[in-house]
Design a protein around this nucleic acid. Structure first.
Lengths: 219, 219
DNA sequence: TATAGTCAGATAGTCGACAATCGACCGTAA
DNA sequence: TTACGGTCGATTGTCGACTATCTGACTATA
C-alpha cells in the first residue's frame, strides 16, 4: 500500500465532502450536522469541525453559530462578475511566474490528466472529467513559485466548479473541451508567456461563458 | 459591558492574532505554538487550532503537519502581481453591485471611519490608522449583496496589509492618505458607478505602489 | 570516527465529554 | 384565542486528556 503520504483526516474529509458537494450528492441548502458526519466517517467532531471550517472559508458551506451549517448556493452574478475574472487573473499570474519552470515532469503531469479526460469521455463519467479538469488547472497554479497563488485559487475555484456542476448542458461538448486542453498544452510547450496567458484566458472564458453554447441557460 | 455581540472565541482570537501580526508583534517566521497560545489566552487548544486554520487559509500562517506553524512572509511579487490586482477587482465588483444600495447609514459609517483616521493622525498611531483604513474598505465590500465578495476579500486583504505593515515610510503621508479617502466618499455620493470604480482602482494603486513615494523601497 | 539504533521531550492530531445556545413544543392565564 | 414563559431535545461551542509523529541527543558498534 502506498502509504507514503501522510494526510490528515481533516484534509481527507474535506476532499471527500467537496467531491460530494460538487457531484451533487449534497445539493445547495442541504443541512450538514457535525455529529452525523463524525459518525458516518468514524472520526471525532473536532475533525469534522476543522473540515467544515475549511469548506466554509472556501465558500462551499455557510454556517451560523449554534444553528448549524448548510451547503452554499452560488449565484450566476458572483461567478461571472467576480469568481471567473479572479480565477483568470490568478492563472495568468501563475503562468507569468511559472511557465519558464515547466519541465518534462510538468508535461508528463499534463499528459496524464489529458489521458484521464479521454478515459472519462469514454466512460461518459462527467464527474471524473471535471476532476481531471480541476487537476489540469491545479498543475498550472502549482507551477508557480508563489504559494499564495494556489492558496487563493483553492478558495475561489470550488465555487466556480460548484456553480457549473449544477448545469447539465456540458456533456455534449466534452470532446471539444478535451481538444481545448490539448491546444493549451501545445501553447505552453512553446514557452511563450504572453501567448499562454492569452490562451488560458480564452480557455476559461470560452468554456464557462454560457452564451458560447457549452452550457445551457438554466439556473 | 456591551456583551450584546456573541462572538466565538475562535473569531476573537483570530482578530487578536491578526492584529498582532499586522502590528509586527509577531514578525514573519515567528514560531507559533498551539499550547502556548492556549495558555496565554486561557482557551483550549481546539479553539487555537481552529483559529490557526483560519489564519492559515488567509495566508498569514504557514503550518506543517506535526512540526508546527510560523508567521508567513509575503513577497513583493505576490502583492503587486497577484494580491493587489485581485483586491482591485473585488472592490470594483462590490461597487458595481452595491453602490446603488449605499444609504445614509453607509455614509455615516464612512464618516466615523474618516473621523477615526483623523484621530489616528493626531495621535500619530499608525496601527489605528491602518485599522481604520481596513474598515473603510470593508464597508465597500460589505455594501455588496454578494457574500463571497467579503469572504474572498478577507482571504486576500490581510496579506496585502501585512506586506505594507513591514514598510515604514508611510507615516509622512497619512494626512494626504486621509484626503484621498475623503475624495473617494465624495465620488461615492454621486452614485456614479463607473467613476467610483475608476476612483477605487486609482486609490488602491496610488496608495500602494511604492514608486509614488508613499512607501520606501526597503524589503 | 562514523554510522545506525534507541530514547526522550516537544508538539501537533485526534478523541470523548461537558457546557452553552437555539428552536419548537406545551401549558397557563388574561 | 392569543400572548407569554418554561421545558426539553437537538446541535454547536469549548475543554482536557490521550495518541501519533517529529527532532535532536545519546549510545552502541564496526
Amino acid at each position: 500500500m502506498g502509504k507514503l503520504e501522510r494526510i490528515s483526516m481533516k484534509d481527507r474529509l474535506a476532499t471527500e465532502l467537496r467531491r460530494k458537494i460538487l457531484a451533487g450528492d449534497l445539493p445547495p441548502h442541504a443541512r450538514v450536522v457535525e455529529q452525523d458526519l463524525a459518525d458516518e466517517y468514524g472520526v471525532s467532531r473536532a475533525v469534522v469541525r476543522e473540515t467544515m471550517l475549511v469548506l466554509e472559508l472556501q465558500g462551499l458551506i455557510i454556517s451560523t453559530p449554534y444553528k448549524g451549517s448548510e451547503v452554499a448556493s452560488i449565484s450566476r452574478t458572483e461567478v461571472e462578475g467576480l469568481l471567473l475574472p479572479l480565477r483568470i487573473h490568478i492563472e495568468q499570474f501563475a503562468l507569468a511566474e511559472g511557465l519558464a519552470l515547466f519541465d518534462a515532469d510538468t508535461f508528463e503531469d499534463f499528459g496524464r490528466v489529458l489521458a484521464d479526460m479521454e478515459r472519462a469521455i469514454y466512460n461518459k463519467d462527467i464527474n471524473a472529467f471535471n476532476e481531471a479538469d480541476m487537476r489540469f488547472h491545479a498543475i498550472i497554479v502549482d507551477g508557480c513559485p508563489t504559494d499564495s497563488a494556489r492558496s487563493i485559487w483553492d478558495s475561489i475555484h470550488p465555487r466556480i466548479r460548484m456553480h457549473f456542476a449544477m448545469q447539465t448542458g456540458r456533456t455534449g461538448a466534452l470532446s471539444e473541451f478535451l481538444e481545448d486542453h490539448k491546444r493549451l498544452v501545445d501553447v505552453f510547450r512553446t514557452g511563450d508567456v504572453a501567448a499562454s496567458r492569452e490562451a488560458i484566458a480564452a480557455h476559461i472564458i470560452g468554456t464557462n461563458e454560457p452564451h458560447l453554447g457549452l452550457l445551457d441557460e438554466s439556473a
